[in-house]
């Protein structure tokens, strides 16, 4: 176990947090959609990727300034999410839970294929929203810890979004209605909550979160149809690890996975995913509802 002490822990953990905030950010949309509609979506990464391509088109082809392109992409994603809910999910959810999961997998495949058809499979650079030298933290005369500005922005956005979403679910009427719908569809409908509209909103906001994710990840990972592959999978893992309904859980789970990834990637790069999932299984066997989730008991 000598290698334990020789690892550059400080930098690995910083890298892990930078990576993990990408996971956490992607996990938000997954958690939000699960919280409001009770569906685990496997299309979140692809929604993010597709939105990033839209942003790229607005920036690169139409030469729009970044803030304008950003807002337009959000609006596009909001609409796309609502359409997905209206056209696909509302019908799929009449069947079993499995049906909904499968439809989201289908959605992911269609989005990847369409992006490949429209924009091609080559890897493109995506403009950096922030430029400037990385932050350096001097820990010893010979060693600096490095955090790029983009990573810092992503981490900040993640934490701010977590607080905003948390407050939204806790205090706003719409947020409370969303929670009510997720808890009990029938009761919510009887209370006069427009369940269909709440679901569409859940998907719309979830997709918009995905768009933010896509635009922040594309500068790091570059832009191509499969750019979200690994991030999306780790984001699901992070969301589930945190407890799938918990926003702070998504952040904790995402950051934890980022750190595991970073350390495992340094020590045994070829087994990165295997190590992450092995640890995930161990955690889930001990806590089947994730770190911050609550166990559900079925009433009979």
């Amino acid at each position: 176990m000598a290698w334990l002490t020789t690892l550059p822990w400080g930098q690995l953990i910083i890298n892990g947090i930078a990576l993990g905030s990408l996971y956490a950010l992607t996990a938000f949309g997954i958690v939000l959609i699960y919280k409001t509609t009770d569906v685990l979506t496997f299309g979140q990464g692809e929604l993010a990727m597709f939105s990033a391509f839209i942003a790229f088109t607005l920036l690169d082809r139409l030469k729009l300034p970044f803030p304008v392109a950003f807002v337009l992409t959000l609006v596009f994603a909001l609409g796309l999410g609502a359409v997905v809910e209206r056209v696909l999910m509302r019908r799929a959810q009449q069947g079993s839970i499995l049906n909904s999961i499968i439809v989201t997998i289908g959605l992911a495949l269609v989005l990847v294929g369409m992006a490949g058809f429209i924009w091609g499979y080559e890897v493109r650079p995506f403009p950096d929203p922030v430029t400037g030298p990385p932050f350096l933290f001097r820990v010893s005369p010979t060693q600096n810890l490095v955090l790029t500005q983009l990573s810092a922005v992503i981490l900040a956005v993640t934490l701010v979004l977590m607080l905003l979403l948390f407050a939204f679910f806790r205090f706003s009427l719409v947020g409370i209605a969303m929670r009510a719908v997720a808890q009990n569809r029938v009761a919510a409908r009887l209370m006069g909550i427009p369940v269909d509209r709440i679901n569409a909103l859940g998907w719309g906001v979830g997709a918009a979160l995905g768009a933010v994710t896509g635009m922040l990840i594309a500068p790091t990972n570059s832009l191509f149809p499969n750019m979200m592959g690994d991030v999306a999978i780790k984001a699901y893992a992070g969301a589930v690890l945190g407890g799938i309904t918990s926003l702070p859980g998504a952040v904790v789970g995402g950051l934890l996975l980022g750190i595991i990834d970073s350390v495992a990637g340094f020590q045994a790069p070829e087994l990165r995913t295997t190590i992450a999932f092995t640890l995930l299984v161990i955690v889930l066997v001990i806590r089947p509802a994730g770190l911050l989730g609550r166990r559900e008991i079925k009433k009979v």
Binding site: I233, A268, E270
Partner: peptide, 23 residues
């Protein structure tokens, strides 16, 4: 595990096997 938890664990299994083959 059930539902989303099980889906994820099996997905992780499927991803790990090719990695173990390489390893």
């Amino acid at each position: 595990l059930s539902g989303p938890y099980l889906a994820l664990v099996t997905l992780g299994f499927g991803l790990s096997i090719p990695q173990l083959v390489l390893w």
